[in-house]
């Protein structure tokens, strides 16, 4: 084929290559390259198209139903009079309480693992189990919450029982997010702090946590937006489907948006399905806004680290 490979010293190349023509191998490589590119695009769009179809479908059904009365009315047996006030108020309560419970616990555990924990079998076991917890189905958390928070600790069917259960559910995610964020803090920052005589805790408080806060918040918000959509564990602990009042304290009974949606979709009347679609739009908006905040924080945080 090529004489140059036969001799030790390759002959000077006199061949003129046409740069606009690909060789046989290059053509094949190019083809594979393009194939994977379009496969990737297709994979991305399948998910998006399904989501878009769903959103459009829901919007057509429900958007006309959303008005001020819908947001501020109590549920009713008459579909056209029913509203989602207790549901979104309950979701807001759950969200706030879950955040208050899970954030300090998750961050403290993450800090422990990254900054204090030594290599030991015990800590390794803990780490593996936290990773496992993240994979436990949420209904199992519901049963756990019913037993421990509902019965053992006597919170009953209250907001507090629900918030503790959901806090437990998202704790592994917050711990992992905290650890990743702390890992991303440059070691030069720690060295500088230690070098000036700071203790470990001072270094964590003044350097590590501020630098990691963006990542921690991002992880927390994303996990909370998962918690706000959870239904199964709350059904198990006994959240009510029909709540004709707005909860006024953490020990009150409650419902949440997904429960309300679930309740409405299980009814035969078409008018209730319209209500469900409208409630879904509200729930989606809440999660989209939360995710948007998380993305904004993450971008700002990445900029700050550079």
């Amino acid at each position: 084929m090529n004489n140059a490979t036969d001799t030790l010293i390759p002959a000077p190349r006199t061949r003129v290559t046409d740069l606009t023509q690909r060789s046989h191998t290059a053509r094949r490589n190019h083809l594979i390259d393009q194939t994977f590119k379009y496969l990737g695009v297709a994979a991305t769009f399948i998910g998006l198209i399904v989501l878009a179809y769903f959103i459009i479908d829901i919007a057509i059904d429900g958007i006309g139903r959303i008005d001020w009365d819908f947001l501020t009315s109590l549920p009713s047996r008459k579909a056209e009079k029913a509203g989602i006030l207790p549901a979104w108020a309950g979701s807001a309560w759950i969200l706030a309480l879950t955040a208050i419970i899970s954030l300090p616990l998750g961050v403290a555990a993450g800090v422990y693992f990254e900054e204090y924990a030594k290599e030991s079998r015990m800590n390794h076991l803990l780490e593996v189990n936290i990773a496992n917890l993240a994979g436990v189905p949420s209904i199992i958390y519901g049963i756990l919450g019913l037993e421990v928070f509902g019965r053992l600790m006597g919170f009953g069917e209250s907001l507090l029982a629900g918030a503790f259960t959901l806090a437990l559910l998202i704790l592994p995610i917050i711990i992992v997010a905290t650890r990743e964020a702390i890992k991303a803090v440059p070691s030069t920052l720690r060295e500088a702090s230690y070098g000036l005589g700071a203790t470990k805790w001072q270094t964590i408080k003044w350097q590590v946590l501020p630098a990691a806060s963006g990542g921690i918040l991002t992880g927390t918000i994303l996990s909370l937006s998962r918690a706000v959509g959870e239904t199964a564990p709350l059904i198990v602990i006994g959240a009510l489907a029909y709540v004709p009042f707005v909860p006024s304290g953490p020990m009150d009974q409650f419902t949440v948006l997904p429960m309300q949606i679930f309740n409405w979709t299980s009814r035969p009347q078409a008018a209730f399905l319209t209500n469900a679609a409208a409630a879904i739009i509200v729930l989606l908006l809440i999660t989209f806004i939360m995710n948007g905040i998380a993305i904004y924080l993450r971008n700002r945080w990445q900029k700050n680290l550079k």
């Binding site: 440059p186 030069t188 500088a192 070098g195 000036l196 005589g197």
Partner: peptide, 16 residues
């Protein structure tokens, strides 16, 4: 000890 023995590092590492 580190108050008596200060250190300047290879890459400038001011706090943000």
């Amino acid at each position: 000890l580190r108050k008596l023995v200060g250190m300047v590092f290879q890459k400038p590492n001011p706090f943000p």
